[in-house]
Computed example of a mutant assay.
Amino acid sequence: MARYIGPKSKIARRFGEAIFGPDKVLESKAYPPGQHGPNQRRNKTSEYGLQLKEKQKAKYTYGILERQFRTLFKKANSSKGVTGEVLLQLLECRLDNVVYRLGIAPTRSAARQLVSHKHITVNGSVVNIASYSVRPGDIVGVREKSKSLEVVSNSLASHRGGQYSWLEWDSAALSGKFLNRPERTEIPENIKEQLIVELYSK
């Protein structure tokens, strides 16, 4: 199972955003990594550079590598609707992302681990594929044997329910219903998806 396992704070500093969640390093070092980071001259980035940076940001944010990302783009490009918006919707439909959005896990990487270790169910059946595409009406929950996991209880304790309009959380059953694909205005990620479309359209 391919995933990025390198230094996350360095990546977050490169983009100047806490794309992996709250980061104390980013707060104290709000400049690019490297020995010249604090004094780095801001040269004008090319159009291609901006497009590539946006694609990389999206990939790191959702925790997927190039092959999966390109496959999702092709699927979005052949679907009805605005390609960039459909791409973000497909990313939001990934099971690991839904688990994160529901507050079952504190980060997407933690959500991915819960899924791969068979702690998560979809419509009552265990699903251990992080890229599984959740459909409207699906119920995503915590497996009965896993409800006492410390990482789950701690995450839910610090999570504010009802944060996302396309998800409905049942605190008693520790499960959430995926109501519909979110509109672009509802997705909080700071990603300029049109730049990604332009990059792949070359």
Rank of each mutant, 00 (worst) to 15 (best):
R3D: 13
S9A: 13
I11R: 13
E17P: 00
E17N: 05
V25G: 09
S28H: 12
G34T: 02
G34F: 08
G37H: 06
N39T: 10
Q40D: 05
N43Q: 10
N43C: 08
Q56A: 01
A58I: 00
K59M: 15
K59T: 07
Y60P: 00
T61Q: 12
L65I: 10
E66A: 13
R67L: 11
Q68T: 08
F69G: 08
T71N: 15
L72I: 11
F73Y: 14
S78I: 02
S79E: 11
S79K: 13
K80H: 08
G81A: 09
G81M: 11
V82K: 14
G84L: 00
G84E: 04
E85I: 11
Q89A: 13
L91K: 01
L91Q: 03
C93Y: 10
L95S: 02
D96R: 07
N97V: 13
R101Y: 00
R101L: 05
R101Q: 11
I104H: 14
S109R: 12
S109V: 13
V115G: 02
V122K: 00
N123T: 03
G124E: 03
G124W: 03
S125Q: 12
V127Y: 05
V127S: 05
A130G: 05
A130L: 07
Y132W: 05
V134D: 11
G137E: 09
V140S: 07
V140D: 01
S146D: 09
K147I: 03
V152F: 14
L156R: 15
L156H: 08
G161N: 12
G162M: 01
Q163M: 13
Q163Y: 12
W166Q: 04
E168R: 12
E168P: 01
D170N: 13
A172D: 10
A173E: 14
A173V: 06
L174I: 11
G176E: 02
K177D: 14
F178A: 07
N180H: 13
R181H: 14
R181V: 09
P182L: 03
P182I: 02
E183Q: 14
R184A: 11
E189M: 06
N190M: 12
K192Q: 15
Q194D: 13
V197F: 05
L199Q: 01
L199A: 07
S201D: 14
